[in-house]
């Protein structure tokens, strides 16, 4: 690749992680992780449970601070941001939680209005309601507007969770185990939704998962996290062409079973 292209790519990086370390007491979760994410791409981070995948996206969103290393998100060094700057950055990031994390005392409509009311004060009530209906329609759940999270299925809760993150029109989406606990058909629908969000809302995404079907259908690029380090990166086919038994065992477990 020509040098000028490489320099241009480095400038455009949405996320640049360099030598990131994170430990909890004696448990070293990340041991010098490096990852670059370019605009518009979906990067899937694959790894076994407890390998630090969720910690990684919490560091990217500024919910956790890395012990050392450089974390640059949307052109800003996360570790050096003030609380106010961090809040401004978070408006540009959407975080879809594994548990959906919907506010269970609020209806779907109130859940979606919550970030809007606090962060888009200039919008009129009508504009806010229109925004809620637009994103809810985008995830195919307009009919659930007045329902409470407890009245929704697991897949519907995931969709509403994604809608809530989309309402602030983020540039970067972070999905934490989007298909965990869902049946295969609902998982396929969520995977399709992730792709649709990428094309319709022009987002860049990191998808944390250990589900290879999700990785294959949503990822432009796959990065394998093993022992706190990114062991292999590339397209799905490139990564799983690697004969490393740790990567192969992952593939065998997901597809052979």
């Amino acid at each position: 690749m020509p040098l000028s292209n490489t320099i241009q790519q480095e400038k455009n990086r949405v996320i640049a992680l360099s030598n990131v370390y994170k430990a909890f007491d004696e448990n070293e979760v990340l041991r010098g992780a490096n990852l670059d994410v370019l605009p518009g791409e979906n990067v899937v981070v694959l790894g076994r449970s407890g390998t630090g995948k969720s910690v990684l996206i919490k560091i990217i969103s500024g919910m956790l601070l890395a012990d050392s290393g450089h974390v640059e998100v949307l052109g800003q060094d996360v570790s050096r941001l003030s609380q106010r700057e961090l809040q401004a950055l978070r408006l540009r990031i959407g975080f879809s939680f594994q548990s959906s994390a919907l506010y269970d005392s609020m209806t779907v409509q109130e859940n979606l209005l919550f970030p809007l009311v606090r962060n888009k004060r200039h919008l009129s009530r009508k504009e806010k309601n229109t925004a809620v209906e637009t994103v809810l329609d985008a995830v195919g759940l307009l009919q659930t507007l007045k329902q409470y999270p407890s009245e929704l299925s697991g897949g519907q809760r995931k969709r509403v969770g994604i809608a809530r993150t989309l309402i602030l029109q983020p540039e970067l989406m972070l999905y934490d185990e989007p298909t965990a606990g869902l049946d295969p058909i609902t998982s396929t629908e969520i995977n399709a939704l992730i792709r649709e969000v990428q094309s319709r809302f022009k987002t860049t995404s990191i998808i944390i998962t250990h589900d290879l079907a999700c990785a294959k259908s949503t990822g432009d690029r796959v990065a394998i996290l093993l022992d706190g380090l990114f062991h292999k990166e590339g397209t799905f086919a490139e990564v799983f062409a690697d004969k490393d038994p740790r990567i192969q065992s992952f593939y065998d477990y997901n597809f052979t079973q």
């Binding site: 809040q87 401004a88 548990s99 919907l102 506010y103 962060n119």
Partner: peptide, 14 residues
Amino acid sequence: VTEQIEAMEVSATN
């Protein structure tokens, strides 16, 4: 425990 507080934090609400 259901990550709702974290969800508020990442949606730029204190």
